[in-house]
């Protein structure tokens, strides 16, 4: 599957949906897309890894960077990684990324009440 990032709206927040394999070669692509979204910083951002086929430690390191940057900018970040997506979720759990990255299992866990992308 080709790596692709789609802009959209999830739970009333601007979102980026990541398809394909998030690894050493594609992590910089995600970095660029997220940095674009964060300039200027929106109130919130959703990163949807539901259709992500694979994530290695370089992808994980990028998630940590994004989480730290979002926190520094005051952006409410949600990263969706369903338990059904073992390829991504197992890596997240092994690394214990949840200690730094706000991980949710589904859209339902994201609180309501935000505006849609203008």
């Amino acid at each position: 599957m080709l790596f692709a990032i789609e802009r959209g709206t999830v739970a009333g927040r601007p979102s980026l949906t990541v398809r394909g394999e998030l690894d050493l070669s594609t992590a910089p692509v995600l970095a660029k897309a997220v940095d674009g979204e964060l300039t200027p910083p929106p109130p919130a951002l959703v990163l949807d890894l539901t259709p992500t086929a694979f994530m290695d430690s370089s992808g994980a390191r990028e998630l940590v960077r994004i989480a730290r940057k979002a926190a520094a900018e005051g952006v409410e970040l949600h990263v969706i990684a369903p338990h059904t997506n073992g390829a991504v979720r197992l890596t997240i759990d092994l690394l214990d990324l949840g200690t730094v990255v706000p991980i949710v299992a589904s859209t339902a866990e994201i609180p309501a009440g935000r505006e849609a992308r203008p």
Partner: peptide, 9 residues
Amino acid sequence: GRGPALGLL
């Protein structure tokens, strides 16, 4: 005996 990856916390 597990903990988070090095560099997270």
